[in-house]
Amino acid sequence: MKNSILFLLLVVLTITLSLFLPWWIIAPLSIAATYFSKSKPLSSFFLPFSAIFLAWLLSIYFNNSGTISELMGKLFEIDGFIIPFIASALGGLVAGFFGLAGSLFSSPKKNWVNG
């Protein structure tokens, strides 16, 4: 439950904040999300990864991406169809690493309770 809320929050914040902040705003967003939610390391990578992947992919398709995919495909000499997925995966990877770092920096729950 907590993870789904976090996931949705990341998707919504990414889409809204990116409208006026640089693309790498996903890095502080992800690190903050996993730091404060104290996610487990494994999910703290994959949760931001999938949230940002989805946010970017949706945003790209929302931008009417056909011609751009085709042009970028020609430019990088790969099938244009996969360009939006590559783009979204790049964003996802950045988010994933920052998410993982966030969870590693936050103290595990039991220490917090004991301390």
Partner: peptide
């Protein structure tokens, strides 16, 4: 690639059609 391919300030913003 991040600047170029992100959906918000990247090359996707250069898409153009009749709308």
């Amino acid at each position: 690639l991040g600047k170029l391919l992100n959906p918000y300030s990247g090359v996707w913003q250069n898409s153009e059609d009749s709308s």
